[in-house]
Design a protein around this nucleic acid. Structure first.
Length: 509
RNA sequence: GGCGCUAUCGUCUAGGGGUUAGGACGUGAGAUUCUCAAUCUUAAAACCCGGGUUCGAUUCCCGGUAGCGCUACCA
C-alpha cells in the first residue's frame, strides 16, 4: 500500500435517510481529507440485499451534496456512474473481488467452512450465557477433518465461511482512545460469507458480510484512516484479524463518540427531525448544520469563536481535539447557529428557499410577475430576524394573507386593549388618514400620521400602537411598523387577495 | 450474562497535582425599541461515588455506579 497519500472514506448503507450520526461521520471524514490534502471516497455498503434500496442511495448522496461534502471518488449522485479508478464503489458490484479473496483464505487455511446450523449456534450461545462465558463460536468446524468436509459438501450441506481468529491478543490503535487490546477468547471466529443457500440463516444467501467486505474494500481502496462511529470498536478486532490474515497494513482507526438525544438514548425520530432532509425541510441552512455537527464532540484548539464556516472548520480540524464521550444533540444550539447564518445569507437565497412554503397562496412559479417576487423577497426579509429557521415563517406570515377581525377580537388580551376609548380613537384617526391617500402607504406616511395623532390626542406608547397592531395583524407582536406597512400595502396592490392597511383598519371601526 | 467505550455547569466543551475551574448555547435580571425578535450589560449554574498515591487530587491509579455500544450468517 502507498502509505503516503491520505485516503478516507464514508461508507453508508442505503437502508434509510442520511441520519445525524452518519452525517457527522461523513463530515469528519471530509474535514480530515480536506485538511490533509487527501482523498475523500464514498463507498456504498449494500451487501444486505433485503434492506438496501437504490432510492435511499440517491437520497444519501443528494444530502451529502446539500451539506457541501463533495467527494473525490465514488458513485455519482445523479445516475449509476462512478468517479475514480478504485471502483466499483458499490459493494454489490464487487462480488468477484470478494470471492477471489475468500478462495485465497480458504486455500491458505486461514478460513474454513462452517456447517453449523442456526439452531446449533443458538444452543452454544445459550450455554455460554448460562455458564457466564463470552458468547463466542466454539470453532467446532475449524477442526473438522477433510473427509467430513468433503462428505458434507457432497451431500450439499449448506455452509458459511469463517475466519480463524489467531490465538493471541489483537491490538490496534485508535486516534482518540489510544491503544486498544482484545483477548482472543472474547472474539468469535467471524463469518466472512453467509451460507450459500437461502432460508438457512436469514437474508442475503452467499453474500459476504459487512466485517469482511469493509476490510477488503478499505485495504484495496488504499484507505489510510478509518473514521467511523464508536459503535464499531467491538467489530474492529475482527477486521484487524482480516487485515493480518491477508498481510495487509492495518489503517489508523478513529472512532467518533456517539451522538445521543436529550434523553441520552440514541437519536431517533422521537427526538424530532434526525435526517438531513428533515432539517432541510424545516428550514435549517446546511452551513448551520455543518457547524453544529462539527462541534458535537470536537472543539478547535484556540478558536475565538464557535461560529466557523466550512473553510474555517477545515483549517482548524484535528483528531487530537476530538472528545471521547458521547454528545447530546442540542437543538437550541443548532437554532442559535442557524439564526446566525440566516443573518449572513442573502435574502434572495432565503426567499427562494421559502417559496414552497407558500404554495397555493402565490401564483405558480413560472408565471409569477416580477412585482410579486420583489414583494415576496421583502416579506421574507421582514420575518428573518425573529425566526430560528425558515419553516417558522409561514405561521408568522399567515396574517398577511388571511386576516380574521372577529378572531382577533375574540382574544382576551386583544379585547382588553381594544375596549379602551383611546384604542377606538386611535383606530378611527389612523383609518381616516389612510382614506386620504389612494396608493400604497409608505412607512413615512404612517410614521407622520402616528406622531400627528399622538400630539393631537395625547395618546402615546403602547396605548397608541397596540390597537393598530391588533387591527393590522391580529396580534400584539409583529415586525416593526416601518417594514410592515409597506409590505402590507404593496402586497395589497398585487391583487392576490392581501388586504390593505386601510381595509384592515376599517374592519375594526 | 460476557467484552468494550465513556463520565467537568441543564447542554456542547476548555483546563489541569495547588486555578476566582474558562468559553459557548440555554436560563434569570437590567438597558434599549411602538410589541416581538435582535443588540448590549449582568447573574446563577459543574469536576459521579469510594479507596489508593501525594504535603495536597476535580486532575494520576484501582474499584464501584451509571450511560452507551458490541455480543447476528445487520451495517
Amino acid at each position: 500500500m502507498e502509505g503516503q497519500s491520505i485516503r478516507v472514506r464514508f461508507a453508508p448503507s442505503p437502508t434509510g435517510m442520511l441520519h445525524v450520526g452518519n452525517a457527522r461521520t461523513a463530515l469528519y471524514n471530509w474535514l480530515f481529507a480536506r485538511r490533509s490534502g487527501g482523498k475523500f471516497v464514498i463507498r456504498v455498503e449494500d451487501t444486505d440485499v433485503d434492506r438496501s434500496k437504490p432510492n435511499y442511495e440517491k437520497h444519501l448522496l443528494q444530502e451529502l451534496v446539500w451539506l457541501g461534502l463533495n467527494w473525490d471518488e465514488g458513485p455519482n449522485e445523479n445516475d449509476a456512474s462512478e468517479t475514480g479508478d478504485r471502483g466499483p464503489y458499490r459493494q454489490s458490484k464487487r462480488m468477484e473481488t470478494y470471492a477471489t479473496h475468500t478462495a485465497q483464505l480458504l486455500a491458505e487455511g486461514k478460513a474454513y467452512r462452517c456447517f453449523c446450523t442456526p439452531e446449533e449456534l443458538e444452543e452454544e450461545r445459550q450455554l455460554a450465557i448460562a455458564e457466564g462465558r463470552p458468547q463466542v463460536y466454539s470453532g467446532r468446524c475449524r477442526v473438522m477433518n477433510k473427509f467430513d468436509v468433503k462428505e458434507n459438501l457432497l451431500r450439499g450441506k449448506t455452509y458459511s465461511i469463517r475466519l480463524q481468529i489467531p490465538d493471541r491478543p489483537i491490538r490496534f490503535h485508535d486516534a482518540i482512545r489510544g491503544d486498544l487490546e482484545f483477548a482472543p477468547e472474547t472474539i468469535s471466529d467471524p463469518v466472512l460469507v453467509r451460507s450459500a443457500q437461502g432460508g438457512t440463516a436469514g437474508a442475503s444467501p452467499g453474500v459476504p458480510v459487512y466485517n469482511y467486505v469493509v476490510t477488503v474494500d478499505d485495504a484495496l481502496m488504499g484507505i489510510t484512516h478509518v473514521i467511523r462511529g464508536d459503535d464499531h470498536i467491538a467489530n474492529t478486532p475482527k477486521q484487524v484479524a482480516i487485515y493480518e490474515a491477508f498481510g495487509w497494513k492495518v489503517p489508523e482507526f478513529v472512532h467518533l463518540p456517539t451522538i445521543v438525544g436529550p434523553d441520552r438514548e440514541r437519536l431517533s425520530k422521537r427526538h424530532g427531525a434526525t435526517s438531513m432532509s428533515g432539517f432541510r425541510e424545516m428550514g435549517y441552512l446546511p452551513e448551520a448544520l455543518v457547524n453544529h455537527l462539527a462541534l458535537l464532540g470536537w472543539t478547535p484548539k484556540d478558536a475565538k469563536s464557535e461560529i466557523l464556516n466550512p473553510d474555517q472548520l477545515v483549517a482548524a480540524f484535528s483528531f487530537e481535539d476530538i472528545a471521547a464521550s458521547p454528545a447530546i444533540f442540542d437543538f437550541e444550539k443548532l437554532n442559535a447557529l442557524n439564526r446566525h447564518y440566516l443573518k449572513l445569507a442573502t435574502p434572495a437565497r432565503l426567499a427562494a428557499l421559502c417559496w414552497d412554503y407558500f404554495g397555493g397562496l402565490l401564483p405558480e412559479k413560472e408565471e409569477t410577475p416580477d412585482a410579486v417576487l420583489v414583494w415576496f423577497f421583502h416579506m421574507i426579509a421582514m420575518f428573518l430576524p425573529s425566526v430560528n429557521r425558515l419553516g417558522e415563517i409561514p405561521a408568522k406570515a399567515a396574517f398577511i394573507f388571511h386576516m380574521n377581525p372577529n378572531l382577533a377580537r375574540a382574544d382576551e388580551a386583544n379585547a382588553a386593549i381594544l375596549a379602551a376609548d383611546s384604542a377606538r380613537r386611535v383606530i378611527y384617526e389612523i383609518s381616516a388618514k389612510t382614506r386620504t391617500k389612494p396608493g400604497p402607504l409608505t412607512a413615512a406616511d404612517f410614521n407622520a400620521w402616528m406622531s400627528e395623532i399622538s400630539s393631537t390626542t395625547g395618546i402615546s406608547g403602547n396605548e397608541l400602537y397596540d390597537p393598530v397592531r391588533i387591527a393590522l395583524t391580529g396580534s400584539t407582536s409583529c415586525p416593526e411598523f416601518t417594514t410592515l406597512i409597506p409590505v402590507l400595502d404593496q402586497g395589497a396592490a398585487l391583487d392576490i387577495g392581501i388586504p390593505s392597511v386601510g381595509q384592515r383598519l376599517a374592519a375594526f371601526l
